[in-house]
């Protein structure tokens, strides 16, 4: 079978599927990056709620992370996607606006971000706890407002502690975008399946897509290493 593989199928223009694959790859990267960014926002809020929040917000954050970590990503994505679009449409209906078609990319980013947020909360919480208390207390005694303490001291100081976990989460985000194929987002994995089914060259397309994913994960690994070295500058004895 390997003699008969037609690499022309990977050509960028039709009838080759290379262009479609690359478009799917770009969409996967957008979904991963958007979801990751949203996850960081949720994670910082969640970590602050867990560490400095009142009783109720602390418990709510705990319930959120516990649920996210106990239920399969695929199930969470389905719930967020169907329930999210359904609720949005009902809400719009309440205000008299007609049903809207939710933008696919935004919905995908929202779904991935909500899942990522649960894990990011835990990573950032642990990283903030690793910052020596004295540094934060010193900032408070300088009369900085809590927001400024967060921006100037806590977040930069926790960064080196958060990077290994956050790097791991980026890898998970890139791989989680593939799950959106099950819901029907035309990202890399789904495009690959369509291409493979149309041409019946399963190995060619799935291995090509695997290589694209590998390029993404290994490439971002290199970048993250460099970033970690930058964030750790001036720290004594790297782990």
């Amino acid at each position: 079978m390997f003699q008969s593989i037609d690499f022309g199928l990977l050509a960028l223009n039709s009838p080759g599927w290379g262009g479609a694959l690359l478009a799917g790859f770009w969409r996967s990267i957008q979904l991963a990056a958007g979801g990751y960014a949203l996850g960081i926002v949720i994670g910082i809020l969640g970590a602050v709620a867990k560490l400095y929040g009142g009783r109720v917000s602390r418990d709510l954050a705990e319930i959120y992370t516990m649920t996210i970590r106990a239920v399969p990503e695929l199930v969470l994505m389905l719930i967020f996607y169907y329930a999210g679009t359904d609720l949005l449409n009902r809400l719009m209906g309440l205000f008299g606006a007609g049903g809207i078609d939710v933008n696919g990319l935004a919905a995908g980013i929202l779904v991935i971000g909500l899942v990522q947020g649960g894990y990011t909360t835990e990573v950032i919480r642990a990283a903030i706890l690793a910052v020596p208390r004295g540094q934060i207390e010193a900032a408070h005694s300088f009369g900085m407002s809590p927001m400024r303490v967060m921006r100037r001291i806590t977040l930069p100081a926790m960064l080196p502690h958060a990077i290994p976990g956050m790097a791991n989460l980026w890898m998970i985000a890139t791989k989680d975008t593939a799950l959106l194929a099950v819901i029907g987002f035309s990202e890399l994995t789904l495009v690959t399946k369509q291409a493979a089914a149309a041409t019946r060259e399963y190995f060619l397309f799935f291995i090509a897509a695997g290589l694209l994913y590998l390029i993404l994960t290994l490439g971002s690994n290199v970048v993250l290493r460099l970033f970690e070295r930058h964030a750790r500058r001036g720290m004594v004895a790297p782990r």
């Binding site: 989680d176 975008t177 593939a178 799935f206 994913y213 290994l218």
Partner: peptide, 12 residues
């Protein structure tokens, strides 16, 4: 294996 999605491996 760790660098590619499980779904892709499964379908492959």
């Amino acid at each position: 294996v760790r660098g590619t999605p499980l779904l892709l491996q499964l379908w492959l």
